Computed example of a mutant assay.
Amino acid sequence: MMQPTNAWTPPGPAMLFCPADRPERYQKALDRADVVILDLEDAVSPENRVAAREALIANPLDPGRTVVRINPAGTGDYRRDLAAVLETNYRVVMQAKAEDADSIIDTALQTIALIETPLGATRVNEIAAAVNCVGLMWGAEDLVAGLGGKSSRFGPDEDRPGQYRDVARWVRSTVRIAAAAHNKFAVDSVHLDIDDTAGLIGEVRDAVALGYTATACIHPSQVNHIRDGYRPSDDEVDWAQRIVDGSAEHKGGVFKLDGQMIDGPVLRQAEVVLTRAIAAQTVSASSENQA
């Protein structure tokens, strides 16, 4: 599968949205998170988008840790957003409401495709295959609005309060599978209920189990919960190291550990845990340096 040379990947798991018309928040957001997503779309009212683009250009951040969310393809704001990005050192954009591969290719930049419409969900595999698509993210609220629905989650008087409804879960799963099929990273959607810490922690735990690379968020208080969720526990690291060591001892063959038969798929899962542990140490060291 073709990919951009030296394709960008998130340097850490917590990706924090920041309205692009609030430049006084830019650096604060970047200091708190691993990646800041400067938002020219939903977080900015139409009348403030000119000022937002001017702020984007006038207040540079580390381009390796910054993504710019641009408006949907086919809109006047989309073209103006791209022109503004080209006035900066940023080279990674998030395409809102991505619906076809051509709209990704048209950016001519490394692009995270945001799958948040019914049409985008049905075309996610061809979108993921676009040569400059480096990753996928999904969004529930625009998706449900496009369905003519009213809520992406079950309400307090329903059987699974706070959890995603089945259609949203299907898109979440489809996006993750498409990303893996095309060797692109996947970003899990935001948890809008800032006070629902338990819900956020549960979703992050599930995202990690399914191989998501990062989780987007809307408030700095969510960042550490995301980082903690992506950081393997000491017990997980110990389990993974014992499996890797055991595999080496048995020359890659099947062996038994703590009553469990260890074969190739389990070894690969253990290797992923160790990779995440190393990545978490890097993120932690970077955060300490920023402090």
Rank of each mutant, 00 (worst) to 15 (best):
A168V: 15
G229L: 07
G64A: 13
T75E: 00
D258H: 13
G246N: 00
V237G: 01
A270N: 00
Q241H: 13
N59F: 03
T174R: 03
Q222P: 05
A7Y: 02
P265H: 09
V93Q: 06
Y90K: 04
I194A: 02
A14W: 03
L38M: 08
R160F: 15
A84L: 06
A29P: 04
D234L: 14
M2E: 12
Q269F: 11
L119Q: 13
I226G: 03
Y212W: 12
T174K: 07
G64K: 07
T5H: 13
G76W: 00
A209W: 06
R22F: 00
K251P: 06
L274E: 02
I177A: 14
V204A: 03
M137Q: 11
G202S: 01
A240G: 09
Q27V: 01
D228E: 15
D228S: 15
P72H: 12
A279E: 10
A101R: 06
E271I: 09
V35P: 01
D258N: 14
V93C: 08
Q290K: 11
D39Y: 06
P161H: 08
E99H: 14
S284Q: 15
D263N: 08
A181E: 12
D193N: 11
G202D: 11
V35Q: 00
G259M: 07
A14Q: 01
Q110D: 11
D106P: 10
A216Q: 04
Q269L: 15
N6Y: 07
A128C: 02
R65Y: 05
T275E: 15
D235C: 07
Q110H: 12
V223S: 01
R69T: 10
V272M: 08
T117C: 07
G202K: 08
A140V: 03
F185N: 06
M137L: 08
G162C: 09
A113V: 02
P10G: 05
A130E: 09
E41Y: 02
T75G: 14
E99S: 09
T213G: 09
T9N: 04
